[in-house]
Computed example of a mutant assay.
Amino acid sequence: MLFVFRMLLMGLHFFVAGVLGVLLGLCRPFNPDNSRLCARLYAWPAMCILRLRLKAEMGPLLKQSQPCVIVANHQSNYDLFIFGNVVPPRTVCIGKKSLKWVPLFGQLFWLAGNVLIDRGNAQKARQSMLTTTDTLQHRDTSIWVFPEGTRNLGEDLLPFKKGAFQMAIAAGVPIVPVCVSSYIKHMQLNRWRGGKIMIRSLPAIPTDGLSLDDIPLLMSQCHAQMQACIDSMDQQLQAA
């Protein structure tokens, strides 16, 4: 019963946050800080509704003084509410072009200055990558990417796609991994306390001097660090 009540509240919240986000986007369209503000609109009320307790250790990301490519693990649609708590200023996200058809959220996502990629069209995808390089180099804006490309449902990290790493090397900016614990397997939304979640950012991985030939090693390094971090957080939460 509690789960059903929460889902009804979440549906209402999603609609209200979408309306407010679209209004914000219309008032200042494509402002790169719209993403952070809209993320908070979705995240803060959702955390109260779901009664999720979040511990965030974001030191390396908060200390980042230049634009970067942020890579994070992707578990479920709840990521919007979880990661929304920690999106830094002037950060946009890369998403599938099909998102624009989601009522309110799709329009909000577009007006927030996020990048929509048509994965089925190689030429348009390459053009989008050029756009992101310009964003990183000249607009003082970071880009948030889910390098797995799809949800892993709380299991081990899926293989990474190379787009995020190509962007970082092309723009000469660091990569900052952000990891969330395997929350999707432990959420208990039919109980008063929905569960505990940890988010941790890892030290930036520089890309200065790297070429496209270095991408496989860079991807492997980032993947290994993130998996180790997720495993460590899961163990901490189990022991608590």
Rank of each mutant, 00 (worst) to 15 (best):
A39V: 01
A164Q: 10
P29A: 13
Q227V: 12
L157Y: 02
F5H: 13
Q238F: 03
K97M: 10
L108C: 15
R139P: 03
L37V: 13
G59P: 03
L52T: 07
S182Q: 07
D134H: 11
P203V: 06
D214N: 14
R51P: 04
E155F: 13
A164P: 06
R90W: 05
S142H: 11
R139D: 12
Y42I: 07
A125P: 12
P45A: 09
D134T: 10
S182W: 04
V173K: 08
I49T: 09
E148V: 10
I82H: 06
F5W: 15
G113T: 01
Q227N: 13
D134N: 13
L218W: 07
K55I: 02
N73F: 13
F5R: 14
M7K: 14
R51M: 10
G18N: 00
V180G: 10
L54A: 05
W101M: 03
K162M: 12
S220N: 11
Q107A: 10
F15D: 04
L130D: 14
T150W: 10
S128H: 13
L108G: 01
D79F: 07
I70C: 03
T133C: 06
R53H: 14
V92P: 01
L108V: 08
I205W: 02
A171M: 06
C93N: 01
D231F: 03
W101P: 00
W144G: 10
R36A: 03
L136H: 07
V115H: 07
C229L: 07
A171R: 04
A17V: 00
C229Y: 04
T133M: 04
V4G: 03
F5G: 15
T135C: 06
Q166F: 14
L111P: 01
K196M: 10
T132V: 15
V22S: 00
A170Q: 14
G149H: 09
D79W: 12
F15I: 15
A56N: 11
Q123Y: 09
K96S: 07
R28Q: 09
Q127R: 15
Q235G: 08
M219L: 07
W192K: 08
A17L: 01
L116M: 15
C93T: 10
S211K: 08
T133I: 15
D213E: 14
L104T: 02
H13V: 00
S201H: 09
A224D: 15
V87R: 00
Q227H: 13
L136F: 07
V180K: 04
A204Y: 07
E148L: 06
A56I: 11
Q64I: 08
S128P: 09
Q66M: 12
L153G: 06
M129E: 06
V176D: 05
P203Y: 03
I49W: 03
G113F: 01
Q107I: 06
F81M: 12
W110Y: 14
L62S: 12
